[in-house]
Design a protein around this nucleic acid. Structure first.
Length: 282
DNA sequence: AAAGCACCCTGTACGC
DNA sequence: TGCGTACAGGGTGCTT
């Protein structure tokens, strides 16, 4: 599933390809993929617009256009964006198609139809509610520790909450918690200062390593970089999808439990719950 | 504030 | 073989 590293990789790839390109024509094959949901208006508004820049905020891809319009794209579960040549004819799961002035096309595929293309001149309305960027200068260990102190919920669902922190999904949350030796059910405000700092470092390390590998492409999965390449990080996952396999740190079997309706992978030995489920003592 | 659930979808994996 | 059902996932919105 596309999380921050996958969207970042995609944004970098698209930046090189799309900068300065003009959208000649837009074809919406699945109307619910676009916001506002009037495909004709969506297409009309995009016609003739030129790409000024491609960026990312959380899991949102941002394509800034020549006007004040921004095309915000969320891939959700199965969305894919590919720049293709004109003779590419695979239209399976194709939802939106942009014809570009250089003869190429930008194709939005989305098997499960959860993804959204949001055309707006006020991106803050969509992005404003997001928590801090985990790789930004503002996201310091001290700030993270402060954020955690104010929350009494379980750490895993909290990390998945995009209003708390932007960009983490199920895969990198499990990996970061493993790296920081923290059990997914730990209550956020019971983490020690040391643990909070470890988790902060783990989140940044996991995201940076994944970006360096071009993201994670799971088997039978849709995610691809803008040129269609698979990401290389899947082989470096330690806990995600590896239940039953041994923990490379201690040799214990990785377990899979359900937390807040999400499959959760962790090492019961390294990520002990013993240090504190309830409120901090003394 | 926290937690649970339904919803949006489809392909795959399973039981019968 | 083939049908029905459970499940995976991110995010929103509702209820408790």
């Amino acid at each position: 599933m596309p999380e921050l590293p996958e969207v970042e990789t995609l944004a970098r790839g698209l930046q090189a390809t799309l900068m300065g390109r003009t959208i000649v024509e837009t074809r919406v094959l699945w109307p619910r993929s676009v916001i506002p949901p009037d495909p004709a208006a969506f297409a009309r508004r995009l016609a003739g617009q030129t790409v000024a820049s491609v960026g990312r905020r959380g899991k949102w891809l941002m394509i800034a256009l020549g006007s004040s319009d921004v095309l915000l794209i969320h891939l959700r579960m199965s969305g894919r964006l590919l720049v293709e040549s004109e003779q590419c004819l695979d239209t399976r799961h194709l939802r939106v198609l942009f014809l570009l002035d250089d003869g190429q096309r930008l194709s939005f595929f989305d098997q499960r139809k959860f993804g959204r293309l949001h055309l707006t001149d006020d991106p803050a309305q969509v992005l404003g509610a997001l928590g801090p960027e985990p790789l930004s200068d503002e996201f310091t260990a001290e700030r993270f520790e402060e954020m955690l102190r104010q929350r009494s919920g379980r750490i895993k669902p909290l990390l998945l909450n995009q209003r708390f922190l932007a960009g983490l999904g199920n895969i990198y949350t499990d990996e970061a918690l493993w790296q920081a030796h923290i059990h997914p059910l730990r209550q956020a405000n019971t983490l020690t200062v040391t643990e909070a700092h470890q988790l902060h470092r783990a989140i940044q390390a996991v995201l940076q390593a994944a970006i360096a590998s071009g993201g994670t492409t799971l088997q039978d999965e849709a995610y691809q970089q803008a040129d269609g390449q698979a990401g290389e990080f899947a082989s470096k996952l330690v806990v995600y999808g590896r239940d039953g396999q041994t923990c490379p740190r201690c040799g214990q079997a990785i377990e899979r439990i359900t937390v807040a309706q999400r499959g959760t992978h962790f090492c019961p030995q390294c990520q002990s719950l013993a240090q504190g489920l309830g409120p901090a003592q003394g």
